[in-house]
Amino acid sequence: MSIQHFRVALIPFFAAFCLPVFAHPETLVKVKDAEDQLGARVGYIELDLNSGKILESFRPEERFPMMSTFKVLLCGAVLSRVDAGQEQLGRRIHYSQNDLVEYSPVTEKHLTDGMTVRELCSAAITMSDNTAANLLLTTIGGPKELTAFLHNMGDHVTRLDRWEPELNEAIPNDERDTTMPAAMATTLRKLLTGELLTLASRQQLIDWMEADKVAGPLLRSALPAGWFIADKSGAGERGSRGIIAALGPDGKPSRIVVIYTTGSQATMDERNRQIAEIGASLIKHW
Results as ranks from 00 to 15, higher is better:
residue 24 H to L: 10
residue 26 E to L: 11
residue 27 T to P: 07
residue 28 L to C: 12
residue 31 V to Y: 00
residue 33 D to Q: 12
residue 34 A to R: 02
residue 34 A to G: 12
residue 34 A to L: 11
residue 35 E to M: 05
residue 36 D to V: 12
residue 37 Q to V: 06
residue 38 L to F: 06
residue 40 A to M: 08
residue 41 R to E: 15
residue 42 V to M: 13
residue 42 V to F: 07
residue 44 Y to P: 00
residue 47 L to W: 04
residue 48 D to F: 03
residue 48 D to T: 05
residue 50 N to H: 13
residue 54 I to M: 15
residue 58 F to Y: 13
residue 59 R to G: 04
residue 61 E to N: 07
residue 62 E to Y: 06
residue 63 R to M: 10
residue 63 R to A: 10
residue 68 S to H: 02
residue 69 T to E: 01
residue 70 F to Y: 13
residue 71 K to R: 01
residue 77 A to K: 05
residue 78 V to M: 08
residue 80 S to R: 12
residue 80 S to N: 15
residue 82 V to K: 11
residue 84 A to H: 13
residue 87 E to V: 10
residue 87 E to M: 11
residue 88 Q to N: 15
residue 89 L to F: 12
residue 92 R to A: 06
residue 94 H to V: 07
residue 95 Y to C: 03
residue 99 D to G: 09
residue 101 V to F: 08
residue 102 E to P: 07
residue 103 Y to P: 08
residue 103 Y to I: 05
residue 104 S to D: 03
residue 104 S to P: 03
residue 104 S to M: 03
residue 107 T to E: 01
residue 108 E to H: 15
residue 111 L to W: 07
residue 111 L to V: 10
residue 113 D to P: 10
residue 113 D to T: 11
residue 115 M to E: 04
residue 116 T to P: 15
residue 119 E to S: 12
residue 125 I to K: 01
residue 125 I to F: 00
residue 130 N to T: 03
residue 131 T to D: 02
residue 135 L to G: 03
residue 136 L to N: 01
residue 141 G to E: 14
residue 142 G to C: 04
residue 145 E to N: 07
residue 148 A to N: 15
residue 149 F to C: 13
residue 153 M to D: 04
residue 153 M to L: 08
residue 156 H to G: 09
residue 156 H to S: 09
residue 156 H to N: 09
residue 159 R to K: 10
residue 160 L to M: 08
residue 161 D to Y: 05
residue 162 R to V: 02
residue 164 E to A: 01
residue 164 E to D: 02
residue 165 P to Y: 05
residue 165 P to R: 08
residue 169 E to D: 09
residue 170 A to T: 07
residue 171 I to M: 14
residue 172 P to S: 09
residue 173 N to I: 10
residue 174 D to G: 06
residue 174 D to Q: 11
residue 174 D to T: 05
residue 175 E to T: 12
residue 176 R to H: 07
residue 177 D to H: 00
residue 178 T to L: 03
residue 178 T to M: 03
residue 185 A to K: 01
residue 186 T to L: 14
residue 190 K to W: 15
residue 191 L to N: 03
residue 193 T to L: 12
residue 193 T to I: 11
residue 195 E to G: 13
residue 195 E to S: 15
residue 197 L to A: 05
residue 198 T to V: 07
residue 198 T to E: 10
residue 198 T to H: 08
residue 202 R to L: 06
residue 205 L to R: 01
residue 209 M to Q: 01
residue 209 M to W: 03
residue 213 K to E: 05
residue 216 G to A: 12
residue 217 P to S: 14
residue 218 L to T: 03
residue 218 L to G: 04
residue 219 L to V: 09
residue 219 L to E: 02
residue 222 A to H: 07
residue 223 L to G: 04
residue 223 L to S: 13
residue 224 P to D: 08
residue 227 W to Y: 12
residue 230 A to F: 01
residue 231 D to K: 04
residue 232 K to W: 01
residue 234 G to W: 01
residue 235 A to Y: 03
residue 235 A to T: 07
residue 235 A to Q: 05
residue 236 G to E: 03
residue 237 E to I: 07
residue 240 S to Y: 03
residue 241 R to T: 08
residue 241 R to C: 04
residue 243 I to K: 00
residue 243 I to W: 05
residue 245 A to K: 01
residue 246 A to P: 01
residue 248 G to M: 00
residue 250 D to Y: 06
residue 250 D to N: 07
residue 252 K to Y: 13
residue 253 P to A: 07
residue 254 S to M: 11
residue 256 I to N: 00
residue 258 V to Q: 01
residue 261 T to K: 04
residue 262 T to V: 09
residue 263 G to H: 12
residue 265 Q to G: 08
residue 269 D to E: 11
residue 270 E to T: 15
residue 273 R to N: 11
residue 274 Q to F: 06
residue 276 A to R: 11
residue 278 I to V: 14
residue 278 I to G: 01
residue 278 I to A: 02
residue 281 S to I: 13
residue 286 W to N: 02
